[in-house]
Design a protein around this nucleic acid. Structure first.
Length: 565
RNA sequence: GCGACUGUAGUCUAGUGGUUAGGACCGGGGCUUCCCAAGCCUCUAACCCGGGUUCGAAUCCCGGCAGUCGCACCA
């Protein structure tokens, strides 16, 4: 198939539309139409079901506009800013810091003026045509705005939802009664001012993410549910590039996947994607190479799906280590660590310095308390030649050992503080959305079917009168109202021939169609009459009593076999 | 951001200086006891935007926007 056919269907039938089309459109932005909006919700519902109901994680929702401090701490201010310089002749763009990498130890730290100065000083020319280079310009991939009136408080549209979870860690940690592991999920929009959005919905400027941040004890990366799935297999492409099918146990024992919890969530991602309708035969997990890994990641695996565009990343499952929390702790001065209680409080003996307050008082007067604190912060190892050197108000102070003594103290320790590690399965919703459609797309002799899994289908049942006459319409409308009242997404259609109506429903992935015919009317009044239920994938039909219809459809939705109803 | 190609109803497309801008599919209305896009009648609906050349531009030129592909980018 080609992506154009599918995108045309999506546009025609109301899955997605290019945004702002009447004004010429904006690259990298799409609107979800009525069917697309429903499909997107269904994808989010499965993700939420797996993580919130299934794993007991908690969900939050945080702002898309964040103050600059968040991204200073997260590293995005640096990582997202590139200085670009263009050749005046051939117009070829170059990363300015790359051009001066031989001339400066740390070109990343230079600003535009410094970069330009360095290039002028060393007569750096265009590497392609040796011509003169233009001015150095900053290109930042984050959308900038200002918060409040005036422009002195910078804000940025978030490039990922993750930071909203990290900055809330202290609240979430208390919410979870100060226990690990702690799983938090958030879905929403993210923004990246891509230089060149391409390939339909694959690279967008405004996009949807479903992110999961699991905070774990850095010394315990096991997972309670792991044993149940240990022998399940995954199609893996490790760092060395050699694809192989391994069980989770094999992957861990061979050191292919870094730890148990990461392995479990890679497997969970596989089941999640397959439940959404991603074809398992077109799904693999590829390990990031060292140089492709994000600035924060310790190990990272991408779930990749085969699309008409080629292998495409849809989920990234990263072990971010303690990077994010450490960064926010350092920049905000907030406590972001976990107090890890020992099973039994430990008694430890420690040799410490104890200030002699009696001596210090007369010597230092009002500052004695401060000096005592400085002494007691140090240990016996800091004493040399009978003198302890401490720094006070920027000056060095020598304290003779007459002013303190060395004592052995016994302490009871209930636990220790550790910085949690973060396991992050991050899902590209728009890419999953497109994959679900492309993997469901079937076309034979100009007849198109979207074989969406029933759970994904925007419409669960089409309801038709065989013909729009003889009271069939009234009866069909009653059936439609019944299904709607039962919470089943239904669609009423009486136009054109019955075959055309089936075809219309097939094209948008509706799994079943219900038809009221003359037999329905001949049977008893009320809801005793029967209707035909037609299955999209087999095009077989069964007669079902109207009164049983909601129950029957609900069991089909849960996976019952159509042939057995 | 660069280069090549492209842009006509909702969709696919014909039209290469003067056309009431043609067709097909879809969609709306109607006819046909009609269970897998049947048929017939009928209706709606388009030259991406802005400049320029010309008596006259969908058509030629320039710019913008958008798309496809390649380069670059892709924490």
């Amino acid at each position: 198939m080609n992506a154009g056919e599918l995108l045309s269907l999506c546009k025609r039938r109301g899955f997605i539309w290019p945004s702002f089309e009447i004004y010429g459109g904006v690259a990298g932005m799409y609107d979800f139409g009525p069917l697309g909006s429903a499909l997107k919700d269904n994808i989010v519902a499965v993700w939420r079901d797996v993580y919130k109901r299934g794993e007991g994680f908690v969900e939050i929702d945080s702002p898309t506009v964040n103050p600059e401090a968040v991204f200073r701490a997260s590293g995005h201010m640096d990582e997202f800013s590139d200085y670009v310089v263009h050749c005046k002749e051939c117009r070829e763009p170059f990363r300015a810091d790359h051009l001066v990498s031989d001339l400066h130890a740390n070109p990343d730290t230079l600003d535009a003026a410094a970069l330009k100065g360095l290039m002028v000083e060393h007569s750096v020319c265009c590497p392609d045509c040796q011509c003169e280079l233009g001015s150095v310009e900053e290109f930042n991939l984050m959308f900038k705005t200002s918060i409040g009136p005036g422009s002195n408080r910078a804000g940025y549209l978030r490039p990922e939802t993750a930071q909203g979870i990290f900055v809330n860690f202290p609240h979430l940690y208390r919410y979870n009664r100060e226990k690990l592991p702690l799983g938090v999920i958030q879905h929403g929009r993210g923004y990246r001012n891509e230089i060149s959005p391409r390939q339909g919905m694959i690279r967008l400027r405004e996009f949807n993410m479903m992110e999961v941040e699991l905070f774990v004890d850095p010394d315990d990366k096991s997972w309670p549910r792991f044993p149940a799935v240990a022998e399940e297999t995954l199609r893996l492409v490790p760092e060395d590039g050699a694809e192989r099918e391994l069980s989770l146990t094999q992957a861990l024992e061979g050191g292919v996947i870094a730890n148990e919890v990461l392995a479990y969530f890679i497997w969970l991602t596989k089941t999640l994607l397959e439940r959404m309708g991603v074809d398992g035969g077109r799904l693999r997990f590829r390990q990031h190479l060292k140089d492709e890994m994000a600035h924060y990641a310790m190990d990272c695996w991408d779930a990749e799906v085969l699309l008409s565009y080629g292998w495409t990343e849809v989920v990234g499952i990263a072990d971010r280590g303690c990077w994010d929390l450490s960064q926010h702790a350092a920049w905000s001065n907030e406590e972001m660590s976990h107090f890890k209680r020992y099973d039994e409080p430990r008694e430890v003996e420690r040799v410490a310095l104890k200030a002699k307050y009696r001596e210090l008082g007369p010597l230092f007067k009002g500052e004695a308390k401060e000096v005592a604190r400085l002494i007691e912060e140090r240990g016996p190892e800091d004493v040399s030649g009978g003198v302890l050197k401490v720094e006070k108000d920027g000056a060095e102070l020598e304290i003779p050992e007459t002013l303190f003594e060395t004592v052995t103290v016994r302490e009871k320790l209930a636990g220790e503080r550790v910085m949690p590690h973060v396991i992050e399965p991050s899902h590209g919703l728009d890419r999953i959305f497109y994959t679900v459609l492309e993997h469901a797309y079937r076309r034979e002799d100009d007849y198109t079917v979207l074989a969406l899994r029933p759970e994904m289908a925007p419409i669960k049942a089409g309801v038709f009168p065989l013909m729009a006459r003889d009271g069939l319409e009234e009866k069909a409308k009653e059936v439609f109202a019944l299904l709607t009242a039962e919470g089943i997404e239904a669609f009423y259609d009486e136009s054109g021939s019955i075959g055309k109506r089936y075809a219309r429903m097939d094209e948008v992935g509706t799994p079943w169609c219900v038809t009221v015919d003359y037999e329905t009317l001949e049977e008893e009044r009320g809801l005793k009459g029967t209707v035909t239920v037609r299955d999209r994938d087999s095009s077989e039909q069964r007669r079902v009593a109207i009164s049983d219809l909601p129950v029957t459809l609900k069991s089909l939705l849960k996976g019952a076999d159509f042939a057995k109803i």
